[in-house]
Simulated scan of single mutants.
Amino acid sequence: MDTAIVFATSLFIAVLAAAGFAPAQADWNKGTATFYGGADASGTMGGACGYGNLYAAGYGTNTAALSSVLFNDGWSCGQCYLIMCDGAATPQWCRAGAAVTVTATNLCPPNWALPNNNGGWCNPPRPHFDMAEPAWLQIGIYKAGIIPVLYQQVKCWRQGGIRFTVGGFNFFELVLVSNVAGSGSVRSVSVKGGSTGWITLNRNWGANWQCNSGLVGQPLSFAVTSTGGQTLYAYNVVPSWWTFGMTFTSNQQFSY
């Protein structure tokens, strides 16, 4: 990293620290960013993490689809990244002094028909963010289309507690764990019914965790461990009268 970038990023980190935002790591990484989903971000709903309606899920429009090298087969779902346009590389396409924190909610798949440096922006090994348009416009000029960025993973801040959406049918439960603060992503999940012991869930896809047990009619408790290493217990967060498709919010939240 050259002297101009070191000075700019050091100054920026100092400003963030003064404002109470502490970066998770000292070094910034280089990547690129494009945008998708339209001016209202309606095209970003759903996605490879399974959060569905991002407004209802609490993520809003500050979201991004990650290239496969960052997405890590879905283990990065929910993580937060502080991103700023690399003004030292393309000052004409950057909003000076601006930065935005986005949540990983989707995968930007590779496009093998195009070269990595000409349209295949999400091809390995490129670290790339395909950001919701409103988020991207906070740091870049629309006409640019693609900009070089400096980024780092940071702590996530969420309103309220961890949310559990219980999908599935009969003896198959698919639990979406969302609104995760701290590291933002989940390492492991276990469930306990009113008449069962703790059952380890397997991650099915994105932020969805799978269980093959007859839990209908039982209150459910969850033990969730974040990728930051913190474990929280949400006892009886799901009442016995739950039905598939319902979402329940705990009063627990991660701090790291």
Rank of each mutant, 00 (worst) to 15 (best):
A99L: 08
Q218A: 06
A96I: 15
Q92S: 14
W209G: 10
C108T: 08
Q230A: 04
T101I: 15
V180Y: 01
E133T: 15
R187T: 15
V180S: 02
G193N: 04
E173P: 04
P219S: 01
L11V: 15
L16A: 08
C122G: 04
D27M: 08
G50M: 00
P125W: 08
F169I: 09
G50I: 04
I13Q: 08
A4L: 11
N62Q: 13
C49F: 05
V186A: 01
C80W: 03
T249N: 06
L176C: 05
V189R: 01
G47Q: 07
I162K: 06
W242C: 06
L220V: 08
C80E: 05
L137M: 13
T243P: 00
G160H: 07
V15Y: 11
A96H: 11
G97H: 09
N208A: 10
T165K: 00
T243M: 03
V186T: 09
N236F: 03
G184Q: 00
Y36H: 07
F7H: 11
A88Q: 13
V154N: 03
G46M: 02
V224L: 05
G206L: 00
G52K: 01
A99G: 15
Y233Q: 06
V166R: 05
R95T: 14
S10Y: 14
A48S: 08
N170L: 14
L137Q: 12
A48P: 01
G140K: 01
R163P: 02
E133K: 11
I13W: 06
A8W: 09
A181Q: 00
G229W: 10
A41S: 12
A65K: 05
V189G: 00
G168A: 05
A41N: 07
N118K: 14
W242M: 06
P124M: 03
F164Y: 06
G214W: 14
W241D: 12
W121Y: 12
P124C: 01
L16M: 07
S188T: 15
T90C: 07
M131L: 14
N208I: 15
S195V: 15
T90E: 04
Y51F: 13
A48N: 05
S185E: 03
W198N: 14
R203V: 14
A234S: 06
T227C: 02
T196L: 00
G74N: 12
A17I: 15
A135S: 11
A4S: 08
F172H: 12
G20H: 06
G197V: 13
Y151I: 07
I83A: 01
L70R: 02
P125S: 04
F248N: 06
F164K: 02
M45N: 13
F129T: 12
W209D: 07
V175R: 01
C85M: 07
A181C: 09
P239M: 08
A89V: 15
F164R: 04
Q159C: 09
N204T: 15
L16T: 13
G168H: 02
M84Y: 11
V177S: 00
T61L: 06
G160S: 10
